[in-house]
């Protein structure tokens, strides 16, 4: 009853036209990319027949695989650290009154709005001049600068998401826990953190994506032996059209779609469980 046909603008033809063209605009390039990854030709337009050749070559491209491994390791570490720091920040700013509360809240929003290029050059200078990262450290310690840079710009995103969830927290449940004998930390762990669960899942997904996706900041922090996946693909694209990029992009696209589907599923399940 709440969704009357009258307001269902998605059924009116002018909006259908806009939806269709935007859909085409967003997805046609990706579909072409996927199709071309199976094309038996170095040229990108002409269809010469089906092949899995590019995928086979992918397996042999050790540099690309190493870059992918770096990216995944960085994303995993950055996600963990960002989740921890972001949650701490959100709870601290939600719970306490202290001089400079407004200032700190505003400061934590800065990494979200500061242009990536500015953060990139700041990290470049920082790790070149202020805190030179020792060369020759074993993997994954060698990835340190990139992880540090990623956490610095990602944890505020997590803090925003967790903070939003805290708004819906019923303080009396925590007081009930205290009343029943839990200490302050125990109450936090037993009552507040479970309430935050959906935001932690959402925050982790966002953190992982942001880290895996980041090119500019990584571009300025990566050394010759800490090339990440986006940086590697960038150099391949710059170098010229190689059908291998089509193939690796397709793999990543499929992975993204699968992960998104999984995330939606998890969120739907979590939502069902949380709903009384």
């Amino acid at each position: 009853m709440s969704a009357p046909d009258l307001l269902d603008y998605s059924r009116r033809w002018p909006l259908r036209l806009v939806l269709a063209s935007v859909g085409l605009f967003l997805y046609l390039p990706l579909l072409v990319l996927v199709a071309m990854s199976f094309n038996d030709s170095r040229q990108t337009t002409v269809w010469r027949g089906f092949t899995l050749d590019w995928y086979a070559r992918l397996g042999g491209n050790l540099e690309l695989l190493a870059a992918l491994g770096n990216s995944l390791a960085i994303a995993a570490l950055a996600t963990l650290l960002s989740l921890l720091l972001g949650t701490l920040a959100a709870i601290a700013l939600w719970r306490f009154r202290f001089p400079g509360l407004g200032l700190v809240s505003a400061a934590f929003a800065l990494p979200i709005v500061v242009p990536e290029i500015c953060m990139g050059v700041a990290m470049l200078i920082f790790f070149a001049r202020i805190l030179p990262w020792p060369a020759g450290l074993p993997w994954p310690l060698s990835l340190g600068p990139i992880v540090i840079a990623h956490v610095a710009f990602i944890f505020p995103f997590v803090a925003v998401i967790v903070r939003a969830r805290l708004e819906s927290f019923n303080r009396e449940t925590e007081e009930a826990a205290r009343d029943l004998g839990a200490g302050p930390w125990r109450a936090l762990l037993d009552v507040v953190v479970p309430h935050l669960k959906p935001s932690l899942v959402a925050g982790a997904l966002l953190a992982f994506t942001l880290s895996l996706d980041d090119f500019v900041i990584t571009f300025f922090t990566a050394g010759p032996d800490t090339v990440t996946f986006p940086v590697k693909v960038y150099s391949m694209v710059r170098f010229g059209v190689t059908p291998e990029v089509n193939a690796v992009s397709t793999v990543l696209l499929v992975l993204t779609v699968a992960l998104t589907a999984l995330a939606l599923r998890v969120q739907a399940l979590a939502g069902e469980k949380l709903a009384p």
């Binding site: 390039p29 990706l30 072409v32 990319l33 895996l212 996706d213 090119f215 996946f229 986006p230 693909v233 960038y234 694209v237 990029v245 992009s249 990543l252 696209l253 993204t256």
Partner: peptide, 8 residues
């Protein structure tokens, strides 16, 4: 991935 989309 941003790079993949741009490339596409």
């Amino acid at each position: 991935n941003l790079l993949i989309r741009t490339y596409a």
